[in-house]
C-alpha cells in the first residue's frame, strides 16, 4: 500500500448558532472528499449546534484537503471549525472491561457540581464515557441535572461508587444515584 492510499483518521469539530442545514452542509463537504464518518456525536446545546466527528479519509486528501473543503462551508454558515489528525493508536476502539454505570446527580444549582463529582471519579480511575448536563427548574429555584455514563475499573462496584460519593452528596445536598447499565449480551 502506498502512502497515497493509506487511511487516516481526523477529529473534526464544528460549532455555531443552530439552524437547519448544518449537518447537510458539512457532510456534503465530507462526501465530496470521499470521507467516512466513523463515530460522531452532534447535539444542540442551548441555541448552539455542536458536531464532533471522527472522519476517515485517504491520506492523499489530508488535513489540508479537509480544511480547504470545510472552511468555506463553515464561513458561509457561520460555524467555527477544528480539525486534528489522529495518530494510528488513537483510533483503536476501546471497549471498557468493567461494568458500565449510570450516575445521576441533581439538586439545587451551585458552583462546582460537575468539578466536585468528576474529581472524585478521576481519583478512582473511573472513566467517563458520556456526560450531559442541563439547567432546569425556575429562576427562583434553579435545578442542575448531571448525567454521567462511566466505565468502572476492574473490581469497582456500583455500591462502592455510591459510598465514595456519599460525603459529597451530603455536602452539596444533591441527589446522587448509581446504577449498573452494562448491556446484557445474549
Amino acid at each position: 500500500m502506498t502512502a497515497e492510499q493509506e487511511i487516516t483518521h481526523y477529529a473534526v469539530s464544528v460549532v455555531g448558532k443552530d439552524r437547519p442545514g448544518i449537518v447537510a452542509a458539512i457532510t456534503e463537504g465530507l462526501f465530496r472528499l470521499g470521507g467516512n464518518i466513523a463515530d460522531s456525536s452532534c447535539t444542540m446545546l442551548a441555541g448552539e449546534f455542536a458536531m464532533i466527528l471522527i472522519v476517515s479519509l485517504k491520506k492523499a486528501s489530508g488535513e489540508r484537503g479537509l480544511l480547504e473543503e470545510l472552511t468555506p462551508v463553515c464561513d458561509r454558515i457561520g460555524m467555527s471549525l477544528g480539525v486534528r489528525t489522529l495518530s494510528g493508536d488513537e483510533i483503536i476502539r476501546q471497549e471498557p472491561d468493567g461494568e458500565i454505570c449510570m450516575i445521576s446527580v441533581y439538586g439545587a444549582d451551585q458552583p462546582g457540581i460537575v468539578y466536585r463529582v468528576t474529581r472524585e471519579l478521576a481519583t478512582r480511575s473511573i472513566n467517563i464515557t458520556d456526560l450531559n448536563t442541563k439547567l432546569i427548574g425556575s429562576e427562583a429555584e434553579p435545578v442542575y441535572v448531571l448525567m454521567l455514563e462511566v466505565a468502572l475499573p476492574e473490581g469497582e462496584t456500583a455500591e462502592g461508587v455510591e459510598a465514595m460519593l456519599a460525603a459529597l452528596k451530603a455536602e452539596l445536598k444533591v441527589e446522587i444515584g448509581v446504577r449498573i447499565i452494562t448491556p446484557v449480551v445474549f
Binding site: 449510570m102 441533581y106 456526560l131 441535572v145 448525567m147 454521567l148 444515584g177 446504577r179 447499565i181
Partner: peptide, 8 residues
C-alpha cells in the same frame, strides 16, 4: 424518574 434513568 431521574433516579432511574438508564440512558444518557
Amino acid at each position: 424518574f431521574l433516579d432511574r434513568v438508564v440512558s444518557i
